[in-house]
Amino acid sequence: MNSIITAHSIRFVLLVLFQVILFNHINFLGYINPYIYIIFIIFFPIKNNRLLFIFLSFLIGLTVDMFSDSGGIHAAASVFIAYTRPVFLKFAFGTMYEHNNVKFNNNDFGAKLVYIALLTVLHHIILFSLEIFSISRILMVFQKTLFSGIFTILMITLVSIIFSRKH
C-alpha cells in the first residue's frame, strides 16, 4: 500500500515538473503544446477511492495553474474528466469494465487509444473554452483543441507504450 502511495506521489511531482518546465514551452507552430500531466488522471488505478481520485485530479490541475498563471482552467478541466471517467471507461472497454478487470497494461491497443483520445479531447475543449472565454472566438477553441489534442494523444500513447510493464 505504501509503495503505491509513494509511486503516485512521485508520478504527480514528476508530471507537474515536466509539464511546466518542458511541455509548456514547446510552442510548436506558435501555440501547440501537449498537456501530458493528464496521464495521472487517465491511468489512475480504477479500484481506488473515487473521492480521493477527484480531489487529487483537482490538485494536479491547480498546481499546473499556479505555475502557468492561468486562474483555474486546468483544475476545472481535470476535475471534470476525473468525474466523468467511468463513462468513458465503460464506452471504451465495455464488459471488461463491468467485470472490474480493466488493467491498462494488458488491454488491446484500440480500446486504450479510444479511451485516451476521448478523455483528452474533452479535457482540451473545457481547457481552451475557459482559457479563451469568449463565444466570438469559438473557432480558435476548436482549432487549439484539435491541434493540441493530436499532440497530447500522441505523447500519452508513446509514454504509455514506453512505460507499460509486460508481465
Binding site: G61, L62, G71, G72, A75, V79, Y83, L130
Partner: peptide, 15 residues
Amino acid sequence: FVLLFGIALIFTIQS
C-alpha cells in the same frame, strides 16, 4: 465534484 469544479470556475473568472 460540484464543489471543486465551482472553486476552479471562480478562480478562472477572477483571473
